[in-house]
């Protein structure tokens, strides 16, 4: 483990980038998931088709392919647009960190679409009717009845989506993001200790996964706190 000693700070900053990508892609995933679920549950034919297309495409393609396509695709598009204004420009890209964040947000968002859709459908019609009977408006029903109830149903798969997100951040190193895997590659080229360096990366991801798993367990307990007596 001596070989790692000079690299801890690099690993730390790599982990910060992993965390940054995780947080932003989590926000994107929730947005895409909710939009997708809303589109799937709506009565609009076109919205239905678009949401179905979205889930089929992003659930059926390898993650790495989406990341590569988004990064290199956007790079040549942006370069082409920039060249209209300034022919001198040779290459422009979206920074890998953002291309990667958007890519994994889109991918996992397609899984979240199905989760949210299922959870909204799983809300007891009786609860909604009771809310109506109490004179709650549509918005009140949505905030006080539908969302808390669907949240309880959505949490376990949602936890798995968060684990997918954190693990997918490793793939962004392929387009040159300087996260932990990238740090390990540099460390290996100077120390010649590939196993040690990659095991550290594995340990970092395991730590992230463990924190997520524990948080989701705590949230689940909180989300079903009023169910405890019923059991």
């Amino acid at each position: 483990m001596d070989a790692v000693s000079g690299w801890w700070d690099d690993y730390f900053w790599g982990s910060v980038i992993v965390l940054q990508v995780f947080i932003f892609s989590l926000i994107l995933m929730i947005i895409f998931g909710l939009l997708g679920a809303a589109a799937k549950l709506s009565n609009n034919f076109i919205a239905n088709k678009i949401a179905n297309g979205y889930t089929v495409v992003f659930r059926g393609t390898p993650e790495i392919l989406v990341i590569l396509l988004l990064y290199f695709g956007s790079a040549i598009s942006i370069t082409a647009i920039a060249q209209i204004f300034n022919p001198e420009i040779k290459f422009l890209d979206i920074p890998p960190v953002w291309a990667g964040t958007i890519a994994i947000g889109l991918i996992v968002g397609s899984y979240a679409t199905e989760t949210f859709r299922g959870a909204f459908q799983g809300v007891q019609p009786g609860s909604v009717e009771a809310a109506r009977a109490l004179g709650m408006s549509n918005l009140q029903t949505f905030i006080y009845i539908r969302t808390p109830e669907m949240w309880r149903l959505a949490l376990p798969p949602f936890g798995n989506h968060m684990l997918s997100l954190i693990k997918d951040t490793a793939l962004i190193s392929i387009i040159g993001l300087n996260e932990t895997l990238f740090v390990a590659k540099q460390a290996i080229s100077t120390t010649g200790k590939p196993f040690t360096m990659y095991i550290v990366v594995g340990g970092i991801y395991l730590a992230f996964s463990s924190v997520i798993t524990l948080s989701v367990m705590a949230l689940e307990r909180y989300g079903s706190r009023h169910m405890r007596d019923a059991r």
Partner: peptide, 10 residues
């Protein structure tokens, strides 16, 4: 708990 890419590299 770890990415498959890291497992492949290890």
């Amino acid at each position: 708990g770890t990415p498959i890419l890291v497992q492949i590299f290890i």
